[in-house]
Nucleic acid binder design. Structure first.
Length: 473
DNA sequence: TGAAATGTTGGGGCG
DNA sequence: ACGCCCCAACATTTC
């Protein structure tokens, strides 16, 4: 029987994988992943994403090997690699699950066209989001600009039941022994990933373990614990979802039987819906990855300050909660969401550096870097996006630290040079008496940087800059 | 999914 | 006893 190629991209799972399921129902399956970063510009995977992708492909490769349908790895261009694989296996059909990003649609259409021209049948499926892209509409048929009404409309639409993993896969006769994941060159030349290996288990098994662990406890306390970065209060599913190691539909149904509104897990389901909202927004406004959704922000008086950007990136701003967050990001490829908001607000509102610079840094360093989420998050913080935080909503890094890391456990973990300070001094060491600093071994301006800006002054300047934009509206 | 400034209220010290 | 002031606590407004 003729084999079907399954073109895997960010659906690196066997569970709830429509393309794989359809292929398996037809006969032999030849799964293939094509590494073609040029085709994803300007958003080719960043360094942290490449590390994750390598691990995830290794896991999937082992899984598919054991299932008797070995994964083929190839380098782009995608169309050429797929055509070559069709020739090699004798396949006459290629199936895949759609990617949501607007800037990738042209590539996928071109691939489909190239395959069709060669007489190859193709089929694509929706497997990334909870609700069919474009299906959440307001009364007048438009997309939503505000989350809450989006959520109300979405929650009324049932989420498709996830598919079980195919009972049995059959690979192509005598296949195996292709290029190993290392051949793609995704790993960094210098191994900086030790902390990442400790923090994560990429791959479908790791994703399902994370889901089970979250469902078994934290989800019930999510509303209360999610804002405290020192607590294990959040799911940490984002990178698994980004690479499709578990489907959003699987997560939804694992945490929700019956209607979402009123369910104990509703606070978390709402968070999953933010991901949907982000994808919806990006689909409707494909240029917002680089341009503000609110066009008046195009004339915002941003500063260019590479040195300040650098200090923010490496966690040397002098504000402990910001620096702890930026170092957690650098070490583990992830940052707690509460801290993302604080750190992002600091870059945009205290330093007046364009949100695009922050988005680019997150893109390169986050293992869960996702264009829709990243774009929406940064525009939200900057106040120029949908459902945006009004620009005057400026986070005070000292108050936020004291409120959400009251014991200092988070700051002490990621900024250990401050660990000896008493809780009270931890979030504003420059205000501590000299003897307290000495006792803690803290030398302001040496072991610990002084705050690079005065927050209350920076806030005034941010408000003035905003007034300038608002005036011209 | 803010924070600061400003306004209001009420208790207590005190002349 | 009474009015005055101070200020904490809370509410509202403003940025």
């Amino acid at each position: 029987m003729m084999a079907t190629l399954v073109w895997l991209r960010r659906d690196l799972r066997l569970d709830d994988n429509p393309a794989l399921t359809v292929a398996a129902a037809h006969g032999p399956v030849a799964p293939i992943f094509v590494w073609a970063p040029d085709e994803e510009e300007p958003w080719a995977p960043g360094a942290a994403s490449r590390w994750w992708l390598h691990q995830s492909l290794s896991a999937l490769s082992a899984e598919l090997e054991a299932a008797d349908a070995p994964l083929r790895l190839a380098c782009g261009p995608s169309a050429e690699a797929l055509l070559a694989e069709c020739r090699r296996t004798g396949a006459r059909r290629v199936v895949w699950n759609r990617l949501p990003e607007p800037h990738l649609q042209g590539r996928d259409e071109a691939v489909a066209h190239a395959l069709a021209s060669a007489g190859i049948e193709t089929a694509a499926f929706d497997a990334c989001t909870l609700w069919r892209p474009g299906s959440i509409r307001n009364g007048s048929g438009n997309g939503f600009q505000v989350f809450t009404p989006f959520w109300r409309a979405a929650a009324a639409i049932p989420v498709v039941e996830p598919l079980p993993r195919p009972a049995r896969l059959r690979g192509v006769e005598g296949d195996g022994g292709g290029m190993p994941p290392a051949g793609l060159g995704l790993l960094p030349a210098v191994d900086w990933a030790a902390e990442m290996r400790r923090a994560w288990q990429p791959g479908e098994a790791g994703a399902l373990e994370a889901l089970d662990a979250f469902a078994a406890g934290p989800v019930a306390r999510y509303a209360a614990d999610r804002d405290f970065p020192a607590l294990p209060g959040v799911s940490r599913l984002a990178p698994h979802l980004h690479f499709g190691e578990v489907s959003a539909r699987r997560v939804w149904h694992a945490l929700c039987q019956g209607p979402p509104q009123g369910a104990p897990s509703e606070p978390f389901l709402r968070q999953l819906a933010w991901r949907e909202f982000a994808h919806d927004l990006l689909a409707h406004h494909p240029k917002t990855d680089t341009e503000p959704l609110r066009s008046e922000f195009a004339r915002f008086p941003w500063r260019s300050d590479p040195e300040a950007l650098r200090r923010w990136q490496c966690g040397r701003t002098g504000y402990p909660i910001v620096d702890a967050g930026m170092r957690e990001l650098w070490a583990t490829g992830w940052m707690h969401n509460r801290v993302r908001m604080i750190a992002a607000s600091f870059l945009v509102k205290d330093l007046l550096i364009p949100w695009q610079e922050g988005a680019r840094w997150f893109w390169d360093t986050l293992v869960d870097a996702d264009l829709a989420n990243n774009t929406m998050g940064w525009q939200w913080v900057a106040g120029c996006g949908a459902d945006a935080a009004p620009y005057f909503r400026v986070f005070n890094p000292v108050l936020q630290g004291a409120r959400f890391d009251p014991t200092g456990a988070y700051v002490r973990r990621w900024a250990p040079e401050l660990a000896g300070l008493p809780d009270r001094a931890l979030h504003a060491p420059w205000e501590a008496p000299a003897d307290v600093l000495r006792a803690a071994g803290v030398e302001l301006g040496r072991s610990v940087p002084r705050p690079m800006v005065d927050h209350s002054q920076a806030r005034q300047e941010a408000l003035a800059a905003y007034a300038q934009v608002a005036a011209g509206r």
